[in-house]
Amino acid sequence: MNVKLNAIAIAISFVFIAPQLQAYQLIKDDKNDVKLTGMAYAGHFFGNEKNSANYGSNNFLRFGADAKTAIDDKLTAIGKYEAQFKLNNPDSEQNFASSVNGSDNGGAGDAQGTNVRTRLIFGGVGVKDIGAFTFGRQWSPNADTFTGWTDIGYTDGYTGSALGLGTDRFASARASDVLKYAGVFGNANILASYKFKTQRDTDTLDKDNSAYNLAATYNLPMHVSIGAGFINGHRPQSTSGVATNNPKLYLAGLKYDDSSWYAAVTAAKGSDFLANGVDHKGIETALRYTFTNGLGLLATWEKQTVDVNGENLDAYNSTTFGPIYNFTKNLSVSFEYRINSLDKNAWSPSAVRAYGDYSKTSGSYNSVAVDAANDYQFAVKYLF
């Protein structure tokens, strides 16, 4: 055991001191398969420093470990860990403050030093011809499906906002305390999960509580796949007497992928999902072409509208486009430009008052009453 622990420690140090390494095969034999993987991402948001949604540095390091151990000819033990370090500041300002929920850039351009984020940590068992059963912090069935279909931006933080699949939001993206099943039966994929209630979730109405996820996809001929999903959550009752509603989210998607051309569209309809008393609709689209010389071109469009007390407002409305060049399968350079079509009357969750009071503040639902500006991001990414 000590030998294996020392080997793991040495391999993790390699991740930091030798970024030229590819996925590091730590153990490989008849029963065990353990790999260390990661990503170094150096990006910068450009635009209007005051009005852009993001501005400034967007640097992070992500690393993880994947492990499989054969128990017998039908059972396999599986485990995964993945962490992310946000590295936006000079080394003289670094600290290890706790991160907050949000997009992976954690608030580009802020001054919080190094935020350490545990993205995934789970374990379980795979059963031959039946599927895998896992428990811990992991991706939801619907995130496995729909996030991966249209949240495919070349740079970090520009796609995947319209459907409502948020981190720790009723286990709709990544979440802890999740029991999950995933099975493959021919061309069909069946996924289901249940998030257990935790004490942390009951502090306020905006915290998540127990929820279950269902998703299914089917691979059709001619490189086409279809999918559908459902999420049902539980929101605790207000202590101030305001009635609360249990959230629901319905999803559907369609994609085409022939390795050169890729096209996908996903849609969602939610009731009380983003917040109590707020219904929403979302659509995300993606179109990509990958050349054989390493060049790729991508365009996306996504829009989310919310219904607040009978009034329809935009929450997201953006178009992105840009190229990527892959020097190798590990190293890439990308650029994306975002046309942000939101105005000062856009709805923002940060403007929501406690216990479901969605009255306008200063004539705007948005926490910053300005027209959103266009912006763009340049990034260098290294996979190892």
Rank of each mutant, 00 (worst) to 15 (best):
L5D: 11
A9S: 14
S13W: 01
I17S: 15
Q20L: 11
Q22R: 01
Q25D: 13
L26Y: 05
D29E: 06
K31V: 07
N32V: 09
V34S: 00
K35S: 11
H44K: 12
F46V: 03
S52Q: 00
A53L: 03
S57E: 09
F60R: 07
L61D: 08
F63A: 07
A67C: 03
K68Y: 07
T69V: 11
K74T: 14
K74R: 15
T76R: 05
T76G: 07
I78M: 07
G79I: 12
L87N: 02
L87K: 05
S99E: 08
S103H: 02
S103L: 08
N105I: 07
G106Q: 05
G106I: 01
A108W: 00
D110H: 08
R117E: 10
T118D: 12
I121Y: 12
V125K: 03
G126D: 13
K128Y: 02
W139P: 04
T145Q: 10
W149C: 10
W149I: 09
T150F: 04
T155Y: 00
D156F: 01
D156C: 03
G160K: 04
G160N: 09
A162C: 10
G166V: 13
D168Y: 13
Y181H: 09
Y181A: 06
F185D: 04
I190F: 15
Y194P: 12
K195D: 09
K197M: 05
K197H: 06
D203K: 14
D203F: 14
K207E: 06
D208F: 10
Y212L: 10
L214I: 13
Y218K: 05
M222A: 15
S225E: 13
G229F: 06
F230R: 11
F230P: 10
R235V: 10
P236K: 15
P236G: 08
P236I: 12
G241R: 06
G241D: 03
V242I: 08
V242A: 10
N246A: 09
L254F: 15
K255F: 03
D257A: 12
D258Y: 02
A263S: 13
V265E: 12
K269E: 09
G270H: 09
L274G: 07
L274S: 07
V278G: 01
D279P: 11
K281E: 05
I283F: 06
T290A: 15
F291C: 08
G294K: 01
L295R: 10
E302L: 03
K303I: 02
K303F: 00
E311Q: 15
Y316L: 08
Y316P: 02
P323K: 06
L331A: 11
S332C: 00
V333H: 01
I339M: 15
S350T: 14
A354Y: 02
Y355Q: 09
S362Q: 09
G363H: 03
Q377V: 09
Q377Y: 00
Q377R: 10
